[in-house]
Design a protein around this nucleic acid. Sequence first.
DNA 1: CCATACCAACTGGTTAACCAGTTGGATCAT
DNA 2: ATGATCCAACTGGTTAACCAGTTGGTATGG
Lengths: 251, 251
Amino acid sequence: MIDNQKEHPTDRVIRSIQAMLHDGTISSGGKVPSERVLAESLGTTRGYVRIALQRLEHYGVIVIYPQKGIYVSPIKPITLDAIINNILRFKEHDIASLMETRRPLEIESARLAAIRCTPEDIERIVQAHENFKQAYTEGKPTLEEDHLFHLAIAKGTCNTVLESLITLITPEIITMNKDFKENYSVVVKHSLEEHRQIVLALQAKDPQRAMQAMDIHMDNSRKRRIGNPVPETAHMTDNSEETYETETHAR
Amino acid sequence: MIDNQKEHPTDRVIRSIQAMLHDGTISSGGKVPSERVLAESLGTTRGYVRIALQRLEHYGVIVIYPQKGIYVSPIKPITLDAIINNILRFKEHDIASLMETRRPLEIESARLAAIRCTPEDIERIVQAHENFKQAYTEGKPTLEEDHLFHLAIAKGTCNTVLESLITLITPEIITMNKDFKENYSVVVKHSLEEHRQIVLALQAKDPQRAMQAMDIHMDNSRKRRIGNPVPETAHMTDNSEETYETETHAR
DNA sequence: CCATACCAACTGGTTAACCAGTTGGATCAT
DNA sequence: ATGATCCAACTGGTTAACCAGTTGGTATGG
């Protein structure tokens, strides 16, 4: 195997463990060699092995039992392999992929929030919207108020996973948009109006309307940020009802 | 603040840093005290501080410059706060939330795959489908072949974030479904047919049809797994008042 | 008085040693 | 032969010490 020397030691360890899973040195459900053995056989230090193992545990690949040993999750090697590949490439995110993935998450977030959010949630959402508006009228940056509005909605979904994922991609989008300048006033004004439509839909507890409002908002956000480079056919803004029709058709 | 002594040291460190952001001890864009200082002031060891900081960096809250110092991301404290809360509660995932969130991700995955996947992607997807079918005919467990089919589709989206997120929630769903028994033969047979419809849509490169097929599959999967507990009123356009009362109490 | 060179203190990165619980086999009483 | 017992070796958890860059103030030469 080619061991790129520039690669971070922990990544090398993870890759080595992946290789061991490949060649059967360690197998699904079985035991992983101890930290010390791994460190020695991989020519590195225990500290790096430790960090690598903790990352693998965090992603559910292994389970660590203190004073006992390390065991591979009872998942097939090929699945483990896919997960590990994902761990190794985790940070290779581009702005287009981020915004593209954000869309369905936010739409679902709006739908569930419309169904489940409490009056307190609504209040928080409205407050976030007001903060956004105020920052705008004061001529201050609004990027984060924007995202806080969306996080407030996510909190109203009663769905921990959805909230987690939306929160997870938020900082990446924020930092990637930090250097993004445009005709500020106009852009934000549009966003504000779109947010207002979302708030109205949530207050009316109308999931369909919330989804539609959020979809429009996401689509416009993308256009404002990266133009319209996403492959043509998929998304039709003019007849979005049809999209929803099909999406919910089977339900 | 209540410092639960049973809490893991790293979580305590993260919570302390969160508190420091709250009371302004450290501020957005500013410098975080050095690892040693943090360790001493928090009454813990440097190792735990280190792990905590690495987690925070992984989630974009801070940036660590070797031999220089640690700096807070130039994001507003309130946003950072939300992100940190998310980090601390990251594992509190339930199967209902997982499957609920999986649906829009998979639908988008199917849509993008239908638009962008190459012949090689199609081949991989078909192969994964065949593997699933074979495992079924041999009477073997099929849970993972099922997910590998979906991962193959995600790989065809050319969207690194979407692929990451789907991969991220896969092991959780698999392990949560490990102990899930049902009338196996019938269930898998239905899944197979649903998968076949998805494959056909992808081969036809028809995003709408792919979305629809995936939606049906996700909906049936959820029903097979956890019955039909998700509020169904979402699709009805009238009765907003009634849903309000019932839904919000589910919290 | 100013520019420069230097050095001590501090940074995160890394390594090795120590700790307490677990395990499994050798040993010994039955 | 069998069972309980004990102890050495091994486990991951934790801590402290060492390393190599960076920094910023200070002393020194112009």
